[in-house]
Write a protein that binds this DNA or RNA. Structure first.
Lengths: 335, 335
DNA sequence: TTGTACGCGTTATCAA
DNA sequence: TTGATAACGCGTACAA
């Protein structure tokens, strides 16, 4: 049934070595025999067995994926789509390494090694989530998304979180907002930290001073956004606008604002971050900082491939521009 | 660096064969040597190389995935999450086979064979989309989601589309609706056909007659739903309610209804299908037939595993119950 | 330019 | 109960 290299060799009347050479693009093979072999390969629909290939030390053409969030994260699905493109064009297959069992003895690294994975994409982790040293020490090329790890054979990619938030703030400032709050997410996370920095930079640029009471942390969920916004509204002086660390958080903020008898954008302007599908469907449509998920995914694989191919490559760090998408959740500040 | 079975054997003072037997649960090995080997395995953090394993004809513990829709489909992401659970507990890894190049010579089946994939999940296809005969002939166990293929070593899973729509119709009928339209999607698709059947069954149950002019086809997108709803509204007699084949289609229907100067649910009640995130966030929140994506995904893998394990298994077909989620997009029919 | 033969890491057979 | 050893399918020195 499954034809192997020996069948091809026999049919072509050559040795297996010759077939192998033809298949691997060696130039040291006669044009005629080459054509003959190629013809037989086509006829017999032969495809080299990848297990055998990677066993002899050849490339396995597989990239592993490691997530905390699970596959269903609405944001990550889009990054995956972007990855798909470069994966396809470079000939990699993507393997989703399910954590067999998350006990002390389970090692993600060994899992990768046993699968002969050439490189790994890691997403959804914070620095204190786990110890990446085993992964780094293993020498498996790794590309982190939204986490600034720069070690041997390691790199990362993320959106330009600072500029994204800074632009959002600039926009609000242009709308005469002066009391602009910031709904942070998990404070220790890479993106939260950088988005906060963008907030501060934007404040400085607008000549506004930083006010502790206008910043409150939560997480990336709708519920977290709801709680945070509620806290914010309970404080003596209300903001006229709020920038959220995520669209899901903004969803919660909407709810909290409504529950307080206020409305968006008349009483409070809201800006999100991500631009997930829902953003354009809710009422009012959410003004948000769009992440270029497609580019993030595509480039992540390109960088990882570079890391795999070039052993001495310097740790790459890529920052992908964001874009402020203006919709209906902001209005000119009153008064 | 990477330790292999010989290293372990040497360290344990036994032969590689013994180590292999211990690792594969053979009972024909002395308790003491077994413990010794196990200890060394733990110390040395040895994990068998899966490429070598599958090369000798052992199980590869990999399941392939084949999609048209791309990874980003909001609905499929949730199915994946469900799959993740059983994948994990059964020890499979999931490999996403990117279509290296979609030309005539590319064969998904050969790709699977070269990767030693034990089984395949197929999603997003219709019967006329492609020729599945190569896949079926290959003997690779295959589980189709939302497509009724029942061949050798093949099976499928889908929601109970008929009952789902029928319940929706029953609900609308209880709200005094008599002119209930059906926004179909791609007519040839398995789910569209069955949802249409549910519509007809519901009509019969309610004692209503089928009216051609109340059914219009499009696709699963928002734009498709928009166009279809527009067509529907252009016809002489307007429906008082509409059941959509998908939530995204319902989104488009909302838009078309608004553009016509009408409103949901006052003028027209709308019911969707799927229950994607957006459904609960839009205004008015969408009443919809929820698919149990988690169960679909989980069970898909369970069935596939059964198909893999039991060579003579009859083609399984699984129908997963849906649930009508009542929100704000339906009201009692006027008059 | 082509072919022989070995090795990759593992499992399975069979002899000890 | 254990251990040699032959596969599995392929790539690649090295020899011819």
């Amino acid at each position: 049934m499954a034809t192997n290299i020996r069948d091809v060799a026999k049919a072509a009347g050559v040795s297996v070595a010759t077939v192998s050479k033809v298949l691997n693009g060696y130039t040291t093979v006669n044009q005629q025999t080459k054509e003959k072999v190629l013809r037989i390969v086509k006829e017999t629909r032969f495809t080299p067995n990848s297990a055998a290939r990677s066993l002899v030390g050849r490339r396995s053409m597989t990239i592993g994926m490691f997530l905390t969030t699970g596959l269903a994260h609405p944001f990550f699905a889009h990054i995956l789509s972007g990855m798909e493109q470069s994966l396809k064009s470079m000939g990699y297959d993507l393997i989703y390494l399910t954590q067999i069992q998350w006990d002390k003895d389970y090692s993600f690294v060994r899992h990768c090694q046993s699968r002969n994975v050439e490189g790994v994409v890691v997403f959804g982790f914070q620095h204190d989530d786990m110890d990446f040293s085993e992964l780094i020490d293993s020498g498996i090329p790794t590309l982190f998304i939204d986490l600034d790890v720069k070690e041997q054979r390691t790199g990362y990619i993320s959106s330009d979180n600072e500029t994204g938030v800074q632009e959002a703030l600039r926009y609000l400032n242009g709308l005469n907002h002066r009391r602009i709050a910031f709904l942070s997410a998990i404070e220790t996370s890479y993106v939260s930290r950088h988005r906060l920095q963008g907030y501060q930079a934007g404040l400085a640029e607008a000549g506004l001073s930083f006010d502790d009471s206008l910043v409150v942390a939560s997480d990336f969920t709708k519920e977290g956004g709801y709680r945070a916004m509620k806290q914010l509204l309970a404080r003596p002086t209300r903001p006229t606008a709020v920038i959220c660390c995520s669209d899901t958080g903004a969803l919660g903020a909407y709810q909290a604002i409504r529950d307080a008898g206020l409305s968006v954008p008349e009483d409070i302007s809201v800006i999100g971050f991500d631009d997930i599908e829902i953003a354009s469907e809710i009422q009012p449509a959410l003004t948000t900082v769009r992440q270029d998920t497609n580019t993030i995914g595509r480039k992540a694989i390109e960088l990882l491939d570079a890391l795999i191919t070039d052993v001495s490559m310097q740790p790459p760090e890529a920052i992908v521009p964001t874009q402020l998408v203006i919709r209906g959740s902001c209005s000119v500040a009153k008064g």
